[in-house]
């Protein structure tokens, strides 16, 4: 016996919502999914009319669904936003090619302008060139640091007011768990925020319109909408804690599907003891990006690359920052230490 849609009570249900367990027809699911994102955007006051908003597009499912829904809601509810897709090209042969193709197709389908910012443009180095110098063992440091800043640098370059990213509810819950496992109070406090205010010149405010959308529903949405996406798993393994947190979260979800929302609820309601030390955030004296040191990580990494001292950014060499800033020469011993790299 076919199950009827629990919303319209007319059409046949084609799916069971992972988030609520309701059986819905295609149209009602689309409507519910989109309206939920809309209600989140409105309730959290994510945008203002007239703003230029960059949608971080990787070609993956989250950002493809995000681009699609943002475009649709901007028209349906007259947000008055200027949308554009922003993609980062790390310059890894064979890795980004397919996903960039996907993003380019998305651009045509959604009729949104696409800007691709390349590592070469931003840093003067492609990932391939970096790997050549630092070896495979250390490139994850570079990948993480550069990628974090690439969107910001790109957004500044393109003069957008805000960036929205495809982080979904699973990502947020996973991050809460991970920060508890790592004992990272500063990040635990920040990680459930739906948007970040501008934190300095080099940083554009970011937000997560899909914060309350389940990953499984994003896949369902993309599947029934026949959206064109490329499944990008980062070719570098995720760090250990995230891997554990992810497995744990999946297991929790299988026991009680609401766990994902329950963990976000927990994160949103944590209350921290007064006087718990938070790291002071300053800005990089070279590029203006937020940094607790004189130089931000990517500037240190770049300095290392440009001087042929790749180890500079990998270990902790804070006391060298002053030297680098004032362009003093390094001692022979320092040079030697920073040059050797294990492949």
């Amino acid at each position: 016996m076919p199950v009827l849609c629990s919303s319209c009570s007319e059409k046949r249900a084609v799916l069971k919502r992972p988030k609520t367990g309701h059986s819905l027809c295609k149209a009602c699911f689309f409507w519910a999914f989109e309206e939920e994102v809309h209600r989140t955007i409105v309730a959290a006051k994510l945008f203002r009319p007239g703003e230029t908003v960059g949608v971080a597009a990787s070609g993956g499912k989250d950002s493809t669904v995000l681009a699609h829904v943002m475009k649709l809601l901007n028209e349906r509810h007259s947000y008055g936003l200027e949308l554009m897709l922003i993609s980062v090209d790390e310059g890894i042969t064979g890795y980004r090619d397919d996903s960039l193709e996907t993003v380019k197709r998305n651009q045509q389908q959604y009729e949104l302008p696409l800007k691709i910012v390349s590592y070469e443009e931003l840093y003067g180095w492609t990932m391939d060139a970096i790997v050549k110098q630092v070896g495979l063992k250390n490139n994850c440091t570079f990948c993480g640091v550069f990628r974090r800043q690439a969107l910001d640098r790109g957004a500044v370059m393109l003069k957008v007011d805000k960036i929205c990213t495809g982080h979904n509810a699973d990502d947020v819950a996973e991050t809460v768990l991970m920060n508890i496992l790592r004992g990272d109070i500063a990040r635990l406090r920040r990680c459930t925020a739906i948007s970040t205010a501008s934190e300095g010149d080099g940083v554009v405010p970011r937000c997560k319109p899909l914060k309350y959308a389940y990953e499984k529903e994003i896949v369902l949405y993309a599947y029934f909408k026949k959206l064109d996406y490329f499944s990008t798993e980062c070719i570098y393994s995720p760090n250990a804690y995230r891997g554990y947190a992810r497995t744990f979260l999946k297991d929790l979800e299988s026991i009680r599907p609401s766990s994902i929302m329950d963990i976000i609820h927990s994160g949103e309601n944590l209350s921290f003891r007064e006087g718990v030390k938070m790291p002071v955030q300053g800005t990089c004296s070279r590029c203006g990006y937020i940094s607790s040191q004189a130089l931000c990580k990517s500037c240190v990494l770049l300095e290392g690359l440009n001087r042929g001292l790749p180890k500079l950014g990998i270990g902790k060499h804070h006391r060298l920052h002053e030297k680098i800033l004032s362009q003093q020469p390094l001692t022979e011993r320092e040079e030697r230490k920073l040059k050797s790299v294990d492949f």
């Binding site: 993480g144 990628r147 495809g166 790592r182 760090n239 250990a240 995230r242 990580k297």
Partner: peptide, 13 residues
Amino acid sequence: MCQVEEEYHEQLE
């Protein structure tokens, strides 16, 4: 999303 986006690089003990 790229999982390495946040800077978690310390090795676990």
